[in-house]
Design a protein around this nucleic acid. Structure first.
Length: 154
DNA sequence: GCCAACGTTGGC
DNA sequence: GCCAACGTTGGC
């Protein structure tokens, strides 16, 4: 049974359009440098899982489309790339600390589902992203919430 | 650009 | 192993 997630990205860094323009509409989800998010990526995010693509640090923050996980977790090579902004010398190919997955863009929403929309919808009570101070960049989403947000976007 | 909230680091 | 200081996230 596939799971559902919300992945956050600052569109200035990597946007949904960037994913759509990638070869095969597929790109690595790398640069995750938070342990809780890492644990989700490494242990629970699996191929076939559905992902809400969330744009943060824009006005308004919003979910812009859907992606699908197409490759399970593998050691994040940006960690040992000294030219990468995500470089972290504690992680090595022999003892990886950070992980990435690959995701493929599947569908852009007809209209983005904004954070105010998410917050004002009683059906989305408990959705993590609307919680004050919630900074986690990889968040589990219930199937009910996922289906509801899908309807809002189409 | 500000700053509250949070996660991580490192001195003790 | 506590916790103050620091760095980062992300809504506003």
């Amino acid at each position: 049974m596939g799971k559902y997630w919300l992945f956050k990205s600052e569109p200035d860094v990597f946007s949904f359009a960037d994913l759509a323009a990638s070869p095969g509409k597929t790109a690595p989800w790398d640069g995750v440098r938070n342990f809780q998010a890492r644990n989700f990526l490494r242990d629970e995010v699996k191929p076939g899982d559905q992902v809400l693509f969330y744009h943060s640090r824009i006005q308004p923050p919003c979910i812009v489309g859907i992606a699908e996980v197409v490759r399970e977790a593998y050691p994040d090579p940006t960690a040992w790339d000294p030219t990468s902004p995500y470089s972290d010398s504690r992680s090595t190919p022999e003892k990886p600390l950070w992980y990435a997955v690959d995701v493929r863009c599947t569908r852009e929403f007809a209209s983005p589902v904004t954070l105010p929309m998410l917050k004002s919808d009683p059906a989305l009570e408990g959705l993590l992203v609307i919680r004050k101070g919630m900074r986690l960049s990889i968040q589990p989403v219930s199937e009910t919430h996922f289906r509801h947000i899908l309807k809002m976007g189409d």
